[in-house]
């Protein structure tokens, strides 16, 4: 298989940008919060931007600046940051069957966040192979740049923004659950899948409500997978639009 030509990739990147737009509703308010907290913790604007651009993993960034500000040992800060991000190891293998050969993938993996994975996992199988590199580039780049821009905004004007438009910061993040709902609904293809996915959502929700957000994602997903293997409900055929098993 030869590398996908750049001209064919370019036809997909605009689609990727367009389809990743809903992510902005969740990314920008959270990035603004990070920028604000980071500067309040004593980091400069440039340092805040470097953390957002290079680590680029929401929850672990909050932990990183929080632990540094509280005087935790550096090795422990790094270890905890990586521990939170361990969940990323299952993302690339899950989308790998739909990644055509290209020398760009190793670089593009920097953009494989929770949200970009969820979007890519649903959309890549539906796209022709020639548009997938471009699509991923467009979606991941928009998400990355919006995260950096939001962090900058938060670092230089976070306090002013949150006091002037408090409702905006409360409403816009709803774009994330709305998007994930749209991405996961086509997977409810049988009672077995519905039960496993329902258990996963419920456990993740409970973990968040009890302050265990970081462990919530891998723990809930593991419980859901276990549920899938343990239960033997009749497989009822349903709509399989855009879905895999």
């Amino acid at each position: 298989m030869s590398d996908i030509e750049p001209s064919r990739q370019s036809s997909g990147w605009l689609t990727g940008v367009r389809e990743a737009m809903p992510l902005l509703g969740g990314y920008i308010p959270v990035a603004v919060s990070f920028g604000l907290i980071s500067t309040q913790a004593g980091f400069s604007t440039a340092e805040t931007l470097a953390i957002s651009a290079l680590i680029y993993a929401g929850a672990s960034q909050f932990l990183f600046v929080g632990m540094i500000a509280s005087g935790s040992p550096l090795w422990l800060t790094v270890a905890m940051t990586l521990l939170i991000n361990v969940r990323h190891v299952v993302y690339a293998p899950n989308i790998a069957p739909w990644l055509p050969q290209s020398r760009w993938w190793p670089w593009l993996m920097h953009g494989l966040t929770d949200q970009v994975f969820a979007l890519a996992h649903s959309r890549l199988p539906q796209l022709p192979a020639s548009r997938r590199v471009g699509w991923f580039f467009g979606a991941a780049m928009l998400a990355w740049l919006s995260w950096i821009a939001g962090s900058l905004l938060g670092a230089v004007a976070g306090e002013w923004l949150t006091s002037r438009w408090p409702l905006l910061g409360e409403v816009m993040p709803f774009a994330l659950p709305a998007l994930f709902l749209v991405l996961i609904v086509p997977r409810f293809t049988s009672r077995r899948w519905a039960a496993a996915l329902g258990v996963t959502i419920a456990i993740a929700l409970l973990c968040t409500l009890t302050g265990l957000t970081n462990i919530g994602i891998p723990l809930a997903a593991a419980c859901g997978a276990l549920c899938f293997y343990m239960i033997r409900l009749p497989e009822t055929a349903g709509p399989t639009r855009g879905g895999r098993p």
Binding site: G26, N94, I95, F180, T200, A220, A225
Partner: peptide
């Protein structure tokens, strides 16, 4: 390509998306 993936990995993918949905459901207030 899909058959070459370990089964647990194929199942874990949608579960991760469902988990991200569950985590994001809690409103700011």
């Amino acid at each position: 390509p899909v058959d070459a993936l370990p089964k647990w990995l194929v199942i874990l993918g949608p579960m991760m998306i469902a988990a991200v949905l569950g985590v994001s459901l809690v409103p700011r207030t």
